[in-house]
Write a protein that binds this DNA or RNA. Sequence first.
DNA 1: CAATTTGAAACATATGAAGTTACATGAAAC
DNA 2: GTTTCATGTAACTTCATATGTTTCAAATTG
Lengths: 147, 147
Amino acid sequence: MKRDSRLSSVLHALLHMAEHDGPMTSEALGLCLGTNPVVVRRTMGLLREAGLVAAARGHAGGWRISADLTTVSLRQLHEALGEPAIFAIGNRNETPDCLVEQAVNAALDHAFEEAEALLLERFAAVSLADLAVDFARRHAAWRAAQE
Amino acid sequence: MKRDSRLSSVLHALLHMAEHDGPMTSEALGLCLGTNPVVVRRTMGLLREAGLVAAARGHAGGWRISADLTTVSLRQLHEALGEPAIFAIGNRNETPDCLVEQAVNAALDHAFEEAEALLLERFAAVSLADLAVDFARRHAAWRAAQE
DNA sequence: CAATTTGAAACATATGAAGTTACATGAAAC
DNA sequence: GTTTCATGTAACTTCATATGTTTCAAATTG
């Protein structure tokens, strides 16, 4: 199963935007992410619809963050992306007639629901500002190591 | 992304086997699961390698459980299936040079590791015997509802 | 008007789970 | 011992879907 890496992508893009003065074009972001500008527009477009970023066309256009970094959590970004499926494992049949399969589904669903709740709770607890701080720490450590 | 439903499948198969006297053929299990006998053999073969089931060829052959239902947990089954990837969401690049992406990966990895640990813990706490009990309960309720 | 940039549709590629076909191997029945 | 039944396994096809690509319209700026 191919994994959905859009959450990772938009975080990467947003932090680059946060470190950058002025708007960044899809092409510039595509270079940072190692992907195509159209893929950037497609994914960032979902964040635009959620009001997290704004896009401007034409000369000096591009993408900029239109929200407070301290208030945007990973969970909000996950939601902005349309809450894609979290698990690569699932039930064979979600609405079985077979009582055996119903018992199996109930047990698996329960475990997955707990894990999902924990994951979303952790996502909600991390903001873009937290990531920016972590990046700054790594950057300082990297600069120190260059000496 | 297409979800891996093998854990769900083998649980369904194992509970039918537990309710059934004597070995069950791949064809019979395929009918229970709504799939092809070859798919059953392919998947059950992994459980055979883990020593959880045994297969006999020829007349009166088929699959039977070769372990104590109370000692086989969902986690053991997950392991027998080769510990397939749990999440449908992941990092774009697992070993990035970019410090921004490293910070992003660290945050996501941390959240996913916690959720994975919880899920596996829950899997470890549920045995086939537990599922058999739940099935029996559902079956009794169903019979009562038929009157 | 010309250059730049997003928006979006349409199509191509890649990956992996699941399904299918075909046949060899082994075990029991007769 | 031959027939029948069943697993073991390889090879191929199908299907879903994330990602990538091409193309062009629309909007904005110089």
